[in-house]
Amino acid sequence: MFDLKGSRAVVTGASGGIGRSCALALAASGAELVLFDIHAERLEDTAEQLLDVGCRATVVVGDVTSESDRARLSEVTLDGGAPDVLVNCAGIIKRQDITTMALLDLDVLWDVNVRGTVGITQSLLPAMIQAGRGKIINLGSLGSVTGLDRRTAYATTKGAVALYTKSLAREVGQYGICVNAIAPGYVDTSMTSEWILGDSMRTEQLLSRIPLGRFGRPEDVDGLLIFLASAASDYLTGQVIMLDGGWTTT
């Protein structure tokens, strides 16, 4: 029920953090992989780690904000047929004061987090529609739902990703395609560790709001990801699922 043998999955943002962990989990469940990221060297590292678990991934180096890079990814991917799974994990964060936030920050984050997600999806969606099946999994955030202080641009773009997820789910359900978002809380990655661990007072405050009593690890995402990528979730769509150690209950 949770098996992915014979499935093909595309993972963007696969060079590190949650994206790399997603790639490893998909491979461990038997999926074939196409990896996409702007960081060539770290992406190769991911591919090498995958070799260790017996998965020879196709690597495409590119930028989710570039139309020609997206076209290249889709060409390489569709060579092997429509993908069964698309994981839109590429994303960036910037922290700023709301009063002095540069509006350019909003543009930069919007480009990667929203236009990137929408553009990548659009480039692969027609093939998935034609195949009449597919799982699209977007990486949202706790902030998709709660908003985030001093991370206004990030939370705004992740809110957009959540609404894109729901809108897309409504539109492509008729083709048997499920679209959901994983909304992690505070997961310790290179993108977040300075924020969550860099100031002991803040660390303590954050931990005090996590009933499970610890920050998340990238591997905590694996189970939900595989569930959403597999046939076990064939009637589950349009959901933004919190993976937050219970944060949203406090």
């Binding site: 029920m1 690890r217 905590d220 694996d222 189970g223 569930f227 979730s233 993976l243 949203t248 209950t249």
Partner: peptide, 23 residues
């Protein structure tokens, strides 16, 4: 799928207090 996933400490160990719509 959703029930078994949520019941599993191994796979859903960082999820509590949530509700998942299967609709």
């Amino acid at each position: 799928g959703a029930v078994l996933f949520l019941a599993s400490d191994v796979h859903a160990g960082y999820i509590t207090g949530q509700s998942i719509g299967v609709n």
